[in-house]
Design a protein around this nucleic acid. Structure first.
Lengths: 210, 210
DNA sequence: GCTGTCAATTGACACTGTGTCAAGCGACTT
DNA sequence: AAGTCGCTTGACACAGTGTCAATTGACAGC
């Protein structure tokens, strides 16, 4: 019995995720979410203090469902620094499309909502640690040029791997996900490991003529 | 007489720009704008159909004041392709901070307002032409590797030069504007001209310890 | 000076969306 | 039978956008 009954907070969160993950969807209102959850609007407020908190809770559920940590820690087992960078770029780059719907909704309120901004910043700080670790691995094996500041290299990698960059290339320019991954990997290798061949090969990747 | 009297639309637009250009400012409401213009809220609606139209008009005024076209066309006179890329990156990269306040306000409503999205897209399409021209110049002189697709190279350069990338590096990471320019130029040269030395030199640029 | 016109003001209103409050209702416990 | 828990219903306050109508004030032309 209890196995078939879904509790209301979960119903709300899964409905929210479903709404946010519809490609090209308008950002849902609290009424939209309540309707989609099959629950009254007030019931939503009974379980979540406000829209922002609900969105944040939705990201947490999503992170658990997708087990981002497992994907990212896998990159730590790579032996060489270059392989590690490669693994990290691939893992994160393939994670972005899964979270994009929710990320979009949070990014849309980050300008006006300090709480949302804080939540997003922590999330991105976590990702930045992965960037820093990859940069460190490159530095350890001497692939990162000695005169390069690791902090700045991390900032740059972090920016290259940002959701906005993914959004630009795949959503606005219409790139294939595989093409995005290859390009971003090549860009990271060129920027941090002075390996330029990978990128130019990739920029010739089969471009679906829109 | 008429030289000292400023007409109301101009008063509104300049007040709007002043509000938007305050660093770290909250996004202004129509009431804020009216108050700052020394005019009633309804007077604003008398001259602009709505908030979006007002923002768009503000960007047009700003473009005129800053004469973006002059700055960008200057890059066309560069002889070599590399110099041209360099000039374009510098011109656009130094233009971004001037428009950032307004860009932020427009980007904030792009998700919910189709008209704003359209206006922003045209603006960015103009900038993309500059990217395409720079890529073409590189291709003409053979600096762009022959197997690289110019369309994709343009997309990539356009993304590297996006306002979001500038925002990430200078606003979130706290980079110096000069450092941003050098890095982005280096990244573009590495990605499109296989010149990797420029970037690694730059990533060691004096980083103000926040 | 009188009148018409135009720009702007004032104050009201509708609408959307968020968030709060209080009363009620049904099912399940004890 | 009483109490409690989770949810519903319907009302409300508030901010922000956009609309409308009546009014004011200045500046024209006659």
């Amino acid at each position: 019995m209890s196995s078939t009954t879904i509790d209301t907070p979960t119903k709300i969160l899964t409905a929210t995720l479903a709404l946010l993950e519809r490609p090209g969807a308008k950002l849902p209102t609290m009424s939209d979410i309540a309707r989609a959850s099959g629950v009254s609007r007030q019931a939503v407020y009974l379980h979540f203090p406000g829209r922002t908190d609900l969105l944040i809770a939705a990201t947490r559920l999503q992170d658990m469902q997708n087990d981002i940590d497992a994907a990212l820690t896998a990159s730590r087992s790579a032996t060489s620094g270059t392989e590690r960078l490669d693994a990290f770029v691939t893992a994160w780059g393939n994670y972005i499309p899964k979270i994009y719907g929710v990320a979009r909704a949070i990014l849309a309120v980050v300008d006006t909502d300090a709480e949302a901004a804080a939540a997003w910043n922590t999330r991105m700080a976590d990702m930045r640690e992965g960037c820093a670790a990859a940069v460190q691995a490159l530095a350890n094996e001497g692939t990162l040029p000695a005169n390069v500041d690791p902090e700045q290299a991390t900032d740059l990698l972090w920016t290259i791997l940002s959701v906005r960059t993914w959004e630009n290339l795949t959503q606005t320019c219409g790139w294939d996900q595989a093409c995005y991954i290859d390009t971003v990997r090549g860009l990271a290798l060129a920027a941090l490991a002075q390996d330029v061949g990978a990128l130019t090969d990739v920029l010739a990747c089969p471009d679906p003529p829109a």
